[in-house]
Amino acid sequence: MKKLINTPESVLADALAGIDAAHPELKVDHVNRVIYRAEPTRAGKVALISGGGSGHEPLHGGFVGFGMLDAACAGEVFTSPTPDQMQEATKVADSGAGVLHIVKNYTGDVMNFEMAAEMAEAETGVKVASVVVNDDVAVQDSLFTAGRRGVGLTVLLEKIVGAAAEEGQDLAAVTALAHRVNDSGRSMGMALTSCTVPAAGKPTFDLPDDMMEIGVGIHGEPGRHREKLADAASIAKQLVDPILADMDFTGSPAIVMMNGMGGTPQIELYIMYNEVAKLLKAAGVEVVRNLVGDYITSLDMAGCSVTILKADEEMLKLWDAPVNTAGLRWGV
């Protein structure tokens, strides 16, 4: 394992210290591993809290700031944070207008956030609503699985819903919007290499040089299937086709994210974006906004994912609203 770390055990603590050092506009609670805005939540503003395992940076800590999250809980690498962390985040971010938990659909995350919501309501009376993001079409949504994983759509949702909260929408409205965004977007990812979890010290899975894994998540978990490596155009088709087969994206403007998994250079992401844009145009999908870059990563995994969101007028307006975070910044 070759990594820029001090020790595998101190990865999270050292990274949080770095965020603290780099971002005076944020505060970091190093004991509870909560990143929050230095400026207290405005009275009457719904607080948005997300969190999850670390290793997906800039998600979630990089999206704390004006126009997006109020606080983020960082778990160990690829491990959900714990209910007491979420409690602390809730305490520090709630202005009295209530809190929306943004949860990616993984068994651990869902159970820990459920426990946190039960504890918060029982102990402090804070109003907690939640949205579970489940956009990954690689996973069959059936009674026989834990359901679709939450992946790239989380980024778009945090941006759009964050703008709505900033605008002063109440908890019910913000929550309804979050569910609408979740219902309107889908993602699909692939990997060229495995990632290496620092504590494990070796790649999570073996992928021969001439093979790729289609339908991966963001934790180095194996995907739908593996096959011979192909050119960017064919890979783009393998990502876009299942998304379009799952949902009709025509007849409405779309926001598209071409996301890097952490170990893929920008130049390749642009090649992939171009292929995806061509396919979408041919399919009659009108792409009006896009993001190209590393937004929800899987440590050092090489690969990418595509997220498509069918955006209504309100979502587009909120997308364009100013945002000022370490990971996403415009209009300010």
């Binding site: 395992g53 491990t79 959900s80 714990t82 209910p83 007491d84 651990g108 159970m111 426990m115």
Partner: peptide, 10 residues
């Protein structure tokens, strides 16, 4: 619950 996280913690 407060130290493990993931699914094993709960």
């Amino acid at each position: 619950v407060t130290s493990v996280g993931g699914a094993s913690g709960p």
